[in-house]
Design a protein around this nucleic acid. Sequence first.
DNA 1: ATCTTTTTTTAGATTTGTCTAAATTTTAAT
DNA 2: ATTAAAATTTAGACAAATCTAAAAAAAGAT
Lengths: 194, 194
Amino acid sequence: MNYSVSEENYIKSIYHLQQQTDTVTTNSLANELHTKPASVTDMLKKLQTKKLVEYEKYRGFKLNATGNKLALNIVRRHRLWEFFLVNKLGFEWDKVHAIAEELEHVSSAELIKRLDSFLNFPQTDPHGDPIPDTNGKMAVIKQLSLAEIAVKKNVVVSSVGNQSPEMLEMLKHYNIAIGTILKVNRHFDFDGSV
Amino acid sequence: MNYSVSEENYIKSIYHLQQQTDTVTTNSLANELHTKPASVTDMLKKLQTKKLVEYEKYRGFKLNATGNKLALNIVRRHRLWEFFLVNKLGFEWDKVHAIAEELEHVSSAELIKRLDSFLNFPQTDPHGDPIPDTNGKMAVIKQLSLAEIAVKKNVVVSSVGNQSPEMLEMLKHYNIAIGTILKVNRHFDFDGSV
DNA sequence: ATCTTTTTTTAGATTTGTCTAAATTTTAAT
DNA sequence: ATTAAAATTTAGACAAATCTAAAAAAAGAT
């Protein structure tokens, strides 16, 4: 099957939201895609007839096995391109997201296969996130969030959960990148900052 | 300005057709783009209001300076990606056209700048066609067509004018590629074959 | 348990790029 | 110079993806 850019973006966003909650709501997806709830409902009917999601009116939705496989494939393409942009073209790791978002929709399996080989089969992208293999399997990397880190222990930054421009800007300001060694000095309970 | 994939394809096709005839006709463009004459007329009105073409009803059309610059930019993107696909990813030179056709629409000037540098500023693509620089200038390469080649003289194949799948298939069958040394044994006047 | 608020869906409209069929203009032929 | 043929444009329709406004359903509050 061949999917439109729009369909792929929906599938990818549903996938990402499912990392946090099993079933995804219309509003949260609309928010993620900077679109309106009505548009989400429309597209979801389409994805349902294409048998990529399980969807029951007013009940939220989730990817089925086919949708999940497709999502992992899109994620794979995205992360391989990010790796390419940073490690071959010399982009900074916080500048590649938008470009990879366009490249990921170029639909040639042969292209991705060769790109993967050219890059020497990388396991993680420049943000530290694992790259799914052709079958959608990816290495699970033991990760703790900052809130879970014990005070005064050294840890290595391996990925950045929130990739909003503001967050990336902030990390850059503090000179924090993948591989940086961090020490959490104290937790501030009243607002959760560290 | 930012242009749609469709607009870019029209501009590119008009550019290619202008290599042969100064002003392009509705039918020839429809044919080139595998679309209908009515669609061409519609799009041309749009390109006219966007000030990319000179167009007079029933009189054909041509790119203006802005349109020409855009076309050369698209050609540049296309040929750089073709070079990448062949020289970095190891594609065969007759398999890259369709993929480059998708990659060329990824709209990041920074991406193309870095790609160019990563590829070491190539002058020609894998088909031997020159790659325009950022300003749209490209090396003019002295070329003769097969019909113009004197009998029994050795020449080097530098580009392939007709890139239809049939032509590429035929060249492959005879083992002819860029750089191949050829000798024209005789001309057959009755059908022009060599 | 009822009422209010929030979420989701429906109905109908819009934009982009395309199409078919009909009308118009140009070109070619006599 | 007419007329026939070919090319081009217009008119009106359609599919994809979106939107706004209104209706319907679900969730939360008292």
